[in-house]
Design a protein around this nucleic acid. Structure first.
Length: 286
DNA sequence: AACGGTGACCCCTTTACTTCA
DNA sequence: GCTGAAGTAAAGGGGTCACCG
């Protein structure tokens, strides 16, 4: 991609970058696996290629992308942002002890079980337990409990065992319940973030599509102008470089092949945006 | 040192219950 | 009162990592 010396001078490259990999919560050992951060980049066109824009939701192994091609036909290819970090692993290598129940029982240490049993004699859990052992009863957390959990979640989105135990004691819940609540809470947070990202991408897509349309129009105009006045265009290019879309003017060529000074040098030095919000730069080119 | 088993923890998906319009 | 949607607690399955023998 890009423009070299023998390429037509009207090749333009437009890039827009957004890549904010979020940092992992402090008290977790495993590497951060959240794939949902945005990366928008790269459009190019010249005489041989149709204008195109590509929007990507990057970080998941390259699988997630919007692709917008052409100003007329817009192809949108969206794959769900699944956890590709895990999808690559084997189909099924399940331990013989990994059945659900065994797993659950395993997760409750004997200490916890005793504690739970004690609590069941006196707490609201036992009050709501009357449906029977097999029935899946739905606990509704009290406002106080929810508030405390929320407060705790604000401080750290994951819990270490001590924190979990303490919180469970404080809330009069099973440690497992606290754990599950945090899991669900993290999931909700992630879902919300995904929705926000999705909206952001939609807006970016619209912006870039508009930009693409506009630039294509400019190309057509420049082509027409070049055909009509080839000599004039040559002189103009040799002395002055003007970004047609934003009217930024660079200096005259220095003879060193410095891209900054080449006529219509946008391709070799495109306007990049490194901040985290492409919407703060409504014009993708400028 | 390499390896397999195990426990702990996490995430994702699904299920089932509750609440509310 | 019934119903469907939304919210959410819990279950189940599968993955990673650390530890141990």
């Amino acid at each position: 991609m890009g423009i070299d010396d023998d390429a037509p001078n009207n090749g333009l490259v437009l890039r827009l970058g957004l890549s904010s990999a979020p940092s992992r919560p402090d008290n977790n050992q495993t590497p951060y696996k959240n794939p949902s951060f945005l990366k928008l980049e790269a459009t190019s066109f010249d005489d041989e290629h149709e204008p195109s824009l590509t929007l990507g939701l990057s970080g998941g192994g390259g699988g997630d992308s919007f692709h917008v091609t052409d100003t007329v036909t817009e192809k949108v290819d969206v794959k769900p942002a699944g956890d590709l970090y895990r999808q690559a692993s084997s189909v099924s290598a399940v331990s013989s002890f990994s059945s659900g129940k065994a797993k659950r029982e395993r997760e409750l240490s004997s200490e916890e079980l005793m504690e739970v049993e004690k609590r069941n004699n006196s707490s609201r859990l036992s009050d709501e337990d009357e449906e029977g052992v097999n029935g899946r009863k739905k606990l509704r957390l009290s406002k106080q409990q929810s508030a405390l959990l929320e407060e705790s979640f604000k401080q750290h989105s994951t819990l270490n065992p001590k924190q979990k135990q303490a919180l469970a004691r404080q809330l009069n819940l099973k440690p497992r319940q606290v754990e599950v609540w945090f899991q669900n809470r993290r999931a909700r947070t992630k879902l919300k973030q995904t929705e926000v990202d999705c909206e952001l991408l939609k807006k970016c897509c619209e912006t870039l599509t508009d930009e693409n349309r506009r630039l294509q129009k400019e190309i057509q105009e420049l082509k027409a102008l070049k055909l009509a006045q080839p000599f004039y265009m040559h002189m103009q290019a040799a002395t002055l470089t003007v970004c047609p879309s934003c009217q930024i003017t660079s200096g005259v060529p220095d003879g060193n092949g410095n891209s900054d000074n080449n006529p219509f040098s946008m391709a070799s030095k495109p306007h990049h945006f490194y901040n985290n919000n492409p919407l703060s730069n409504p014009s993708a080119a400028c």
